[in-house]
Each structure stands twice: as C-alpha cells, then as structure tokens.
Amino acid sequence: MSGEKCVFEQAFSFSPLPAKSFSFQQDKDTLTLLMKWSMLGRLSAQTYSFDSNFHPYSCETFALHFFKDPEVIPSLRNMKARVWVPLENPVVSVSVELVPCTKISMELFDPIYSCGILRPSGHVVKCIHDIYPDYDELRQMLQEVDSEHYYAVEKMEREEFLFCLFKHLCLGGELCQYEDTIDPYISTTKKIYKELISVQKDAETKKISVVSTVLKVSAYDESGLCFPGTREEEQTFAYLIVDPVKRNVTLFYHIYGVGNFIL
C-alpha cells in the first residue's frame, strides 16, 4: 500500500489509556438496549494516546503503526468459537477509509420523520419482505437502494459517521430484537456519538466544529483479514477515531455474531 512508503517519514507510538471510560459501556439503560440488539459484549471502545502530530494524509501509516504497536497488540481481540482470543499473527497491512465526520446536531435525521418511514407517534412502519418476515421501512431505507425512501437522507449525509453509527445500531447483531419506535435508536446514537467525537469552539466566531478524524479500518495478517473479524460482514466493523488535539485515538468496533461476551 502507499502507506508503506510513508513508514520511514513519520512514526507513531501508542499507549493504552485504561482510565478512559465511556458511559455507554456502563449505563444500565444503554446496556439493556445493546443486549436487546444482540450487541452487548461485542461492541467495544478502547482509547490510546499517541506521540506524534496526526494529519489525515498520514492515515494509512497511522493505522498500520497502530495495529503493529507492541502496546496495542495485547489489547486486540478477535472471536473464534464464541470466545475472545488474541490475534494469532502480526498485522502486515491495513485498509483505511476516511469517513466524513462534521455533524454537531441530529438534524441529519429530520427527513426520516417526514418521509413516510414513521407514523406520527414515532412508530416504525412495517412492510412485507420476501426474505425477512418481520421487516420495516426503516431497515429497508438503510439497506436497499431501490427503497422509495433510500434517498430521504442524501448520499453525502449517509456517508457521515453519525449516520453510519445510527445504521449500525438499527441493524444490530445476529439475534437483534428490533425496536417498534425510532427513539431508542436516535437517543443511543446521540449518546455514543457525543462521547466518541471531540469538538472545539472558535474563539472569534463561537462556532462549534468537529476536530476528530474518523477512519474505518481493517487489518490483515499474512493469511488475510484478521481484524475486526476474519470474514467480511456489514455489521463487523472497526473505526479509529482520532483526536489530533489531545493526541488520543479510540478504537471502536463490533463483531457480528451470537452471544454476549465482555472483553
């Protein structure tokens, strides 16, 4: 990858920050929802500090150094036979996608409330589906391009990390019990997003903006894909959320499957 050439231009070292915690990993109501959505114990967030200035153009080098760092490797886990295990082999390459992250409000979701996906009460409209017997207009809008509501949220907005997070929560895990109303998805998305993303206020304009850079990542060993999972799956995902001001990075990931496990 192009990142290999940059390895000699800038190096990053990382240190775990075990004291850094997130309320969505401890809040009783949130944990109850994650269990209902079959994501409890499979959704993880861990924060690390790093020692060099970060710039988006160095994202591949940054990610590769992260997954190869001796302070990070012991904290990485994968799942085999429903058991968390350390990565077996060293990471040799990474795939990195820069995810837009600019939103500081929930206005992005306003079109969902007025396009026919929801009833006035906030209940999600059910629909008939050839494959999924208990399907609804919300999941159809999230997953199927030919849905009449797919572009209720515009393409650029759908690419935002805020929307990606919402989609992940709505689709859930393998044994997800889906919500009848949209409120739990919206409130949980807001709670997690606010904790993961860093913002700052301009001293002159007083305008608040996001300073975090979000990278969707996959790591590969000599045998192929090894993190966050060993096979491609939409709901197996990993993001590196970089705060360049504090020089912190949070690894936020989920492994799709059955069972509740705690790291």
Rank of each mutant, 00 (worst) to 15 (best):
T205I: 05
H129M: 06
H55T: 14
G122P: 13
K167L: 11
S75W: 02
L169F: 15
L17R: 10
D183C: 10
K126W: 01
H149E: 05
I128D: 10
T188Y: 10
A152P: 15
M39P: 03
K5T: 09
A219V: 03
L162Y: 15
G41W: 02
P74F: 00
S114Y: 12
R247V: 04
Q26I: 05
F67I: 00
A238V: 14
V99Q: 09
D221H: 02
F24H: 12
S147V: 03
Y178R: 05
V125P: 14
V153E: 13
G257M: 00
F24L: 12
T32A: 10
L31A: 10
F161E: 15
E107R: 03
K216D: 10
S49L: 13
F24D: 09
S44F: 03
I131M: 07
E9A: 02
T181V: 07
G229Q: 09
S38Y: 04
S114M: 08
N78S: 13
S44Y: 08
K201M: 08
L33D: 14
L34C: 08
V210A: 06
L118H: 06
I112P: 06
I186K: 06
V245Y: 08
L225E: 06
V83Y: 10
A45T: 11
K5N: 08
S52A: 15
T236I: 11
Y220E: 03
L34W: 09
I262A: 04
C127M: 13
A19S: 12
Q25I: 01
F8K: 01
V96K: 01
L43S: 04
F54A: 04
M1S: 12
E148P: 00
K36V: 12
M1L: 06
D130P: 14
N89E: 13
D180F: 00
E174K: 02
I112F: 02
P184W: 00
Y132T: 07
D183E: 15
C226D: 09
R139W: 02
K167Y: 07
Y193G: 15
P244Q: 11
P56Y: 11
T61H: 01
P16R: 09
V72H: 08
E222H: 02
C59P: 00
H149T: 00
E107G: 12
A203K: 09
H123I: 08
E60S: 08
K103Q: 15
D221G: 00
R247W: 04
S209Y: 01
Q177Y: 09
Y220M: 05
K167I: 08
E159W: 14
F227V: 05
F166T: 13
L225C: 05
E144Y: 03
Q200W: 11
V242P: 14
R139S: 05
L34R: 07
L87Y: 08
E160V: 06
E148N: 02
Y57G: 00
A19L: 07
V199H: 03
A219T: 05
R42V: 14
Y185L: 12
I241C: 09
F166N: 12
S2F: 08
E97C: 03
Q140W: 02
M39W: 07
V125W: 04
N260G: 03
S44G: 04
K80M: 11
M79I: 15
F8G: 06
D202N: 11
